[in-house]
């Protein structure tokens, strides 16, 4: 997705000739340059900020409360007072949608944080210590992959998941595997490298080696996964809510807004599609951003090449 039309040969030529013309650049500067060259990543970032500010400012600017019904003004179309209209019991949909967006984004971020913690912890332990720990973690990953996620999600969500935090925990417990795999790979790769050997020879303990010398190197690979994870978590949460087993109303999320409006799809399709389109926009931005970050951090894996 870069704007130039260079081929492999030309890149070789450019590399061969660059040595003379360009002064050496630091990794950070190079990464920043690559990121900013990636127009879609910038668009994604701006888009996310924009969407997030709508969600933050929306409920604050509107005179209505998200859970305040008005039986006299039910299923109203968009108007000056209610830009997105009202729902089946007359609640303002603009406030509900932006509130829902807040909850969805918060859940996405929370899942990303929790899954990253679990994944990094288990992945680095497996990669660093190897042996039985590695075996246990690998089997755990396989277990999560074998059980259909939707079943676990539904089972747990039905019981505990009515609250946003509960849903986030459940999602995190299912989504840590990818991060764990990435971290494990990187840690194993660095475990045997010279600077780690040197630290070990200098008498540094396992904990110190892991946290000071190895984990900082994991950051680059993980940041991309985290970005994509936020998108995935938002989609999964909304899917659960759409199936009626996610966050329970009146707390709105983008997913359960769709669920609640589904019955009126024939007469009022906009009410169904609007929150859905917000989800699409968020995921689109997050994916662009993730792609740009991947490009910036690892120049070898171009966005349009194999993932």
């Amino acid at each position: 997705m870069t704007d130039s039309s260079t081929t492999k040969l030309e890149v070789d030529i450019a590399i061969a000739t660059e040595g003379l013309t360009a002064e050496p650049k630091s990794f950070g500067k190079l990464a920043r340059e690559r990121f900013f060259k990636h127009k879609l990543a910038i668009a994604g970032f701006i888009g996310l900020v924009l969407i997030a500010s709508i969600f933050v400012l929306g409920p604050w600017l509107s005179p209505w409360a998200f859970d305040e019904p008005n039986v006299l003004n039910r299923r109203a179309g968009p108007s000056r007072d209610h830009p997105f209209g009202t729902d089946t019991i007359g609640r303002d949909l603009f406030v509900r949608t932006t509130m829902g967006g807040r909850y969805s984004l918060t859940i996405g971020a929370l899942v990303a944080v929790l899954a990253t913690l679990i994944g990094t912890l288990l992945g680095s332990a497996a990669g660093f210590f190897g042996k039985w720990i590695d075996t246990v973690v690998s089997q755990l990953v396989n277990l999560v992959l074998v059980v259909p996620a939707i079943i676990v999600l539904s089972v747990v969500a039905l019981r505990f998941g009515a609250q946003p935090v509960g849903i986030a925990v459940v999602l995190a417990l299912l989504l840590w595997t990818r991060i764990a795999r990435v971290v494990r790979g990187v840690v194993m790769q660095f475990r045997e490298q010279e600077f780690v050997m040197a630290a070990r020879a200098a008498g540094a303990g396992s904990g110190r080696i892991l946290f000071r010398h190895i984990l900082p190197n994991v950051f680059g690979a993980v940041i991309v996964e985290i970005t994509l994870l936020i998108g995935l978590a938002i989609v999964l949460e909304s899917t659960l809510s759409f199936l009626g087993v996610g966050v329970k109303p009146p707390t709105p999320t983008l997913g359960n807004l769709v669920f609640q409006a589904k019955g009126d799809i024939n007469s009022d399709p906009i009410r169904v599609l609007l929150p859905g389109m917000f989800i699409v926009a968020i995921v689109l931005c997050v994916n662009f951003l993730g792609d740009g970050l991947r490009d910036a951090i690892d120049p070898r894996s171009r966005a349009d090449e194999k993932e």
Partner: peptide, 18 residues
């Protein structure tokens, strides 16, 4: 394809349905 990937199944289904 970027756009398609961003669609959760239920949103796409509903859009097509509408």
């Amino acid at each position: 394809s970027f756009f398609g990937i961003a669609f959760p199944a239920f949103v796409l289904g509903l859009v097509l349905q509408v």
